[in-house]
Amino acid sequence: MVKTPDLPQDIISEIIEMALSDHVPFDTIRTLHGVSPDEVKAIMRSNLKTGSYRAWRKRVRDFGDRRAIYK
């Protein structure tokens, strides 16, 4: 299990906003904040409602299957 990184709330909010965007890949989040994709998922899981997290993961997974370059 991946631990959620200890980051200030404003940075966590920015990471969540970036992760929810369909136009920001995980690599950009890693470059800006040094957070791995697994850590982003842990942040999302701990800060979103269960249904919202599942919908986000499904959307990321579905887009990843359809596009060569996506999160």
Rank of each mutant, 00 (worst) to 15 (best):
I11D: 13
Q9R: 15
R59E: 14
G51F: 00
D22E: 06
D22T: 00
D6T: 03
T28A: 12
M44Y: 08
I43V: 07
R54T: 08
T31W: 01
E14A: 15
D22A: 01
R59Q: 10
T50M: 09
I43D: 05
A42G: 01
P5W: 04
K71Q: 05
I43M: 06
R45M: 11
I12G: 04
L20V: 00
F26S: 14
D27T: 13
E39M: 11
D38A: 10
E17N: 07
A68S: 09
H23K: 12
T28V: 14
R67K: 10
L32C: 04
T31C: 03
T4P: 04
W56R: 14
A19D: 05
R59W: 03
L32I: 08
L32T: 02
I43W: 04
D6S: 07
R54E: 14
T31F: 07
K58Q: 13
H23D: 09
P37H: 07
W56T: 06
D38N: 12
S21L: 07
I16M: 15
A55E: 12
T4G: 00
P5A: 10
V2D: 14
G34E: 08
T4E: 15
I11R: 13
I16K: 08
S21V: 06
K41P: 01
V24P: 04
G34D: 11
P8V: 03
R67W: 14
H23L: 10
R57V: 11
D65G: 12
R30P: 00
R45N: 06
M44K: 08
P8G: 10
K49Q: 14
Q9Y: 06
M18G: 00
K3V: 04
A19N: 11
T4Y: 01
M1S: 15
F26V: 09
I11N: 11
G64T: 15
H23N: 07
D22L: 04
H33P: 15
L20C: 08
F63M: 12
R59Y: 02
M1K: 14
H23V: 02
N47E: 10
A42N: 00
M1N: 08
S36H: 09
S46F: 06
R30G: 01
R61W: 08
Y70Q: 12
Y53R: 02
V2F: 08
D38R: 07
T50E: 15
H23Y: 03
Q9T: 14
T50W: 02
S46Y: 03
M44V: 10
T28Q: 14
S36N: 06
I15A: 07
R59A: 13
